[in-house]
Simulated scan of single mutants.
Amino acid sequence: MSATTTGYTVTRELDAPVAEVWDAWTLRERFAQWFGAPLPSVELDVRPGGAWRSTLVAPEGNEYPLTGTYPVVEPRRRLVTAMDIPGQDEPALMDMVLEELDGGRRTRLVIRQECRTAEECAEAEQGTLILLGSLTEFLAGER
């Protein structure tokens, strides 16, 4: 982390193989099921420099259009997602690393993100924790 930013790291061990976790993040039909975005709003061009968009629908019904790119794509190992933030010159970068556990039956997922302020970081981390809870439930239902 640089002196002008703050960040967070979240580690989660998931009861699913790396391939299932990767597919949940990169296949639009699966992504829509756990992310809270209606399928018609989800577009994922998962390749270096590819674009993505979705509209997150919060439990209270508010809609949040999201857009960005994929600066780094290392299939089934690492995915860096850049999210466009209104009013900011630079996108927010979320770095996700996947690691096989237990002979490939489980996955360690590590997410890191830098933020401009402690407040932004707290919001981003809370959002990540909510999404990881939803992802965990989705993966459990895949079994």
Rank of each mutant, 00 (worst) to 15 (best):
G7S: 12
G7I: 05
Y8N: 00
Y8C: 02
T9A: 09
T9I: 12
T9C: 10
V10D: 04
V10E: 11
T11C: 06
R12A: 10
R12V: 08
E13P: 00
D15C: 10
A16H: 02
V18C: 02
A19E: 15
A19Q: 13
W22T: 01
T26P: 13
T26Y: 14
T26S: 15
L27C: 09
R28D: 12
R28F: 00
E29C: 07
E29S: 07
R30D: 08
R30Q: 11
F31A: 11
Q33D: 13
F35Y: 12
F35T: 06
F35I: 07
F35R: 12
G36Q: 05
G36S: 06
A37D: 00
P38T: 00
L39I: 01
P40S: 10
S41Y: 05
S41P: 08
V42H: 02
V42P: 06
V42F: 06
L44W: 03
L44F: 02
L44Y: 02
L44E: 02
D45H: 14
R47W: 01
G49R: 14
G49M: 11
G49C: 07
G49N: 04
A51S: 14
W52A: 05
W52P: 03
S54T: 08
S54N: 08
L56G: 02
V57P: 02
V57T: 04
V57R: 07
A58V: 03
P59Y: 11
P59E: 05
P59M: 06
P59A: 10
E60D: 15
E60F: 05
E60A: 10
G61Y: 10
N62L: 12
N62I: 01
E63H: 08
Y64K: 03
G68D: 13
T69I: 09
T69W: 04
Y70C: 11
V72K: 13
V73N: 09
E74M: 04
P75T: 14
R76V: 05
R76S: 10
R78G: 03
R78I: 09
R78N: 02
V80N: 03
V80H: 14
V80A: 03
M83F: 11
I85E: 05
I85T: 08
I85H: 04
I85M: 14
Q88A: 13
E90V: 11
A92F: 06
L93G: 00
L93H: 05
M94W: 09
D95P: 05
D95E: 04
D95M: 06
M96Q: 11
V97F: 01
L98A: 08
L98R: 09
L98Y: 14
E100P: 10
E100W: 04
L101P: 00
L101N: 01
L101D: 00
D102M: 08
D102H: 14
G104P: 08
G104E: 09
R105G: 12
T107V: 01
R108E: 02
L109S: 04
I111G: 02
I111K: 07
R112Q: 14
